[in-house]
Each structure stands twice: as structure tokens, then as C-alpha cells.
Computed example of a mutant assay.
Amino acid sequence: MKIVILDTKCSNTFSLICSIKRLGFFSTVSSNQDIIKNSDKLFIPGVGTALTAMESIYNHNLYNILREYKKPVLGICLGMQLLCKISDENNKTNMLNILDIHVRKLSSNNILPIPHMGWNKVYCYNNENIFKGIKNGSHFYFIHTYKVPICSYTTSKTYYGEFFSASVKHNNFYGVQFHPEKSGSCGQQLIKNFLEI
């Protein structure tokens, strides 16, 4: 199986590479069009800014390739947000427009610290696909300032002053707001589930 982690030039991929390796697979970090087109599974990792990531996607002529990718994709944190239409980050950043959703800034209500950072419970709508074998209400590790609101694509949710999408799905595109590669055994199971789709 050819597993590719998209090189967005702004993400630390070491933890994700290690998580995949622990499952007995090897991955390639790349922004090469042919390597991405010929992959069986694609991860869009999640550290950095929306603008930097999108600039890298455009600079490598990957915008349409990613939108038209037909095999399973897992967007992680920022990678999930990149699947959306637009983000409030950087005074509005146009994203991949795979999900017709506007990414918003988390509300602190003048009480909660932003970014949302640390372990939080994830409540699944069902335990199929990437949440197979993971107990509802399990803890995953988050670090983010922006959110995907609850929408028709939402498959799980988390509460931090308000409920927001912890994961989304649309056709072959999956996204998680948390970092499974930093989420212990539950995160490892989720990555395993994705690789087995």
C-alpha cells in the first residue's frame, strides 16, 4: 500500500510517520503530483497556517489533484479545515472547497484560553469507519484556534465552550480536528481504521 503524507511545507510530520510505522506500514512525505496521484491513502497533516498550506498547494499545482482524488484522504487538524470552502484565518483564506463549510474562530467567551489545547472527549455519531473499536467519549489530543461548526458532514463532536465538529466525512474525504498521532491508543486505532478502509 502506497501511503503519502502531503508536504504542506508547514507541518511537523514526524509523529504521524512514527504512528504509521508502528502499524507496520511505511509512508512518504511528498508534494509531487505523480506520487500523490498514485498513492492508495493520503494524509493531509495539520500544523501551521491555512494561508501557508494553501500557498504550498497552489505552488505545487495540487489544488485540482487534491479535489479530484478518489482514494481515502484523512485531513488532520488544519488538514481537516483545508477541506472546507473558506476560513476566517488570515482575514479569509480560500480553502480546497470540498466541503461547503466556513471555518470559524473558536469562541473564548472571555473565559476559555485560545487555542484549545489538550485532551478532550470526542462523541461519535456512530462507531463505524474510522471510529471502529473506539469507545464513545474517548479522549483525543487537540491544539487549534479555528473550528469547523457542526454541519451535515459532522461525524463526531467535542465541547469547548460550545460544540464543534471533531470529525467530518464526505465521500472519500475524512477529517479529524484532533491529532490522532498524539492521542495514544485511541489515535493509533483511528489511524489503523483509516488505513484499513
Rank of each mutant, 00 (worst) to 15 (best):
I35C: 04
I35W: 03
I35R: 05
I36G: 14
I36T: 15
N38Y: 13
N38Q: 14
S39D: 15
S39M: 14
D40M: 03
D40R: 01
F43N: 13
I44Y: 08
I44T: 08
P45R: 02
P45H: 00
V47N: 10
G48W: 15
T49M: 04
T49Q: 12
L51K: 14
T52L: 09
A53S: 10
M54P: 10
M54Q: 06
S56T: 15
Y58F: 12
Y58I: 11
N59A: 07
N59W: 09
H60T: 10
N61D: 13
N61E: 10
N61I: 02
N64K: 10
N64F: 03
I65N: 12
I65D: 10
L66P: 15
P72C: 07
V73D: 05
V73S: 04
L74P: 14
L74S: 09
G75N: 09
C77I: 06
L78G: 03
L78A: 06
M80P: 12
Q81T: 02
L82F: 05
L83M: 12
I86N: 13
I86V: 15
I86D: 09
S87M: 02
S87D: 11
N90Y: 11
K92D: 02
T93A: 06
M95D: 02
L96M: 09
L96E: 15
L96S: 11
I98F: 08
I98W: 05
I101Y: 12
V103C: 04
R104Y: 07
K105V: 01
K105S: 01
N110T: 12
N110I: 04
L112M: 09
P113G: 04
P115S: 02
H116C: 04
G118P: 06
W119C: 04
W119M: 07
K121C: 13
K121P: 13
V122W: 02
Y123C: 08
C124F: 15
C124V: 13
Y125C: 00
Y125R: 00
E128K: 05
I130M: 03
I130P: 01
I130W: 09
F131H: 14
F131P: 11
F131M: 08
K132T: 10
N136M: 08
G137K: 02
G137D: 00
G137Q: 02
H139W: 14
F140D: 14
F140H: 14
Y141H: 05
Y141P: 11
Y141I: 14
F142N: 08
F142D: 08
I143Q: 05
T145E: 07
V148D: 05
V148L: 07
P149F: 02
P149E: 00
P149Y: 04
I150M: 10
I150E: 12
S152C: 06
Y153Q: 11
T154M: 03
T154A: 00
T155E: 13
S156L: 08
S156Q: 06
S156G: 05
K157Y: 02
T158N: 07
T158P: 06
Y160H: 07
E162N: 14
E162F: 03
E162V: 07
F163R: 00
A166F: 01
V168Y: 11
K169A: 00
K169G: 00
K169D: 01
K169F: 01
N172G: 10
N172P: 13
N172K: 07
F173P: 13
Y174T: 09
Y174F: 15
G175W: 09
G175S: 09
